[in-house]
Design a protein around this nucleic acid. Structure first.
Lengths: 184, 184
DNA sequence: ACCTGAACACCGTTCAAGT
DNA sequence: ACCTGAACACCGTTCAAGT
């Protein structure tokens, strides 16, 4: 079927967006691509490998600011929200292969001006964790609304945006504040 | 075999701590309890139901402060660290049934003095997310060190504690700071 | 009330063999 | 080089039937 790695990842991204992470299986993906399950392993080492690749695609979708922490947080959120279960996929990839995510190592620089090197790394990771956790919850809730008979509260979207901004603001301000006494 | 719900949850907790979340299956649990898989479903509605129950047990292990946000964060971390993959299990439970976790709804009160009601809820959820995200990463890393040939950096534990304190301090300070201008 | 037997509908992964 | 066939070792869940 002259399949290649790019097509496998493309198909996986499409399937993720349509079925969600729970509906993305190697067997289904193979069938979707008109191929037997074993064939996928000629192009991809494992499902985990595939998920890391998908995570990369998700993050490449939107450029992430490297100068403003607040903007960076919103950029990452926007990227994650473009794909169903995006936050969960990226979280997995980050846990499994922390170095392989594009645009995440550079976030260290967001705090390099105010913080010492070690603390800048902590700060960047803290911000990323906040965004991932927030969006994972957000997307998970959306999933539950879609599946279960959970009555959707109207005007939830704007309140969610407000809640996100609230957390970003608190976190960035707090990170700035603790930077000032890093001279023990 | 005169099994009851408590014994099923007990067995599941033990298996979680020994095998990790990936090694906890209904079939293995059944075999461990000397019973056929189908028997478990007489005591537990589903695996998800079981995980929510386990999450409750994990959080009940340590009392969580309701007066000091910094202490509460450390209390929650301590509770999560007592069980392998504790953070992942509690995260799942929180996503799946946000109301069924003991001691989490009360955290709202930690911020009620400084914040308006809506913002106090946001603040509490932000703090919980931080702790869960941090400990999930922490436990996941420990897992990778145990499995893969990943050379463990010495003195990592103390640095991890420092990193956690750093984030808690920043977050709590930031949350306090944004509280002061909640008069739009 | 509590459990077994047995099935249903799935998984990820491997690997000899084919082309 | 790329894929199939076919297996291996699993999953969660259901449900008639047994005791």
């Amino acid at each position: 079927m002259v399949l290649n790695r790019t097509q496998v990842v493309d198909g996986a991204c499409a399937m993720l967006d349509e079925q969600g992470l729970g509906g993305l299986s190697m067997r289904r993906l193979a069938q979707d691509l008109g191929v037997k399950p074993g064939a996928l392993y000629y192009h991809v080492a494992s499902k985990q490998d595939l998920l890391v690749e998908i995570a990369g695609r998700i993050l490449e979708g939107r450029p992430i600011s490297t100068v403003d922490a607040r903007r960076a947080a919103h950029d990452i959120r926007d990227a994650l929200l473009r794909v169903r279960d995006g936050a969960e996929v990226v979280s997995f990839a980050l846990a499994f292969r922390p170095d392989a995510l594009p645009g995440f190592r550079e976030l260290h620089g967001l705090f390099a001006a105010r913080h010492r090197s070690r603390e800048a790394g902590w700060a960047a990771r803290t911000l990323v964790r906040y965004v991932l956790g927030f969006v994972a919850e957000e997307q998970n809730y959306a999933e539950l609304v879609g599946t279960t008979i959970l009555d959707d509260v109207p005007a939830r979207a704007e309140e969610t945006d407000d809640a996100f901004r609230f957390g970003v603001e608190a976190l960035v301000r707090g990170l700035d504040a603790v930077a000032e006494q890093e001279d023990t």
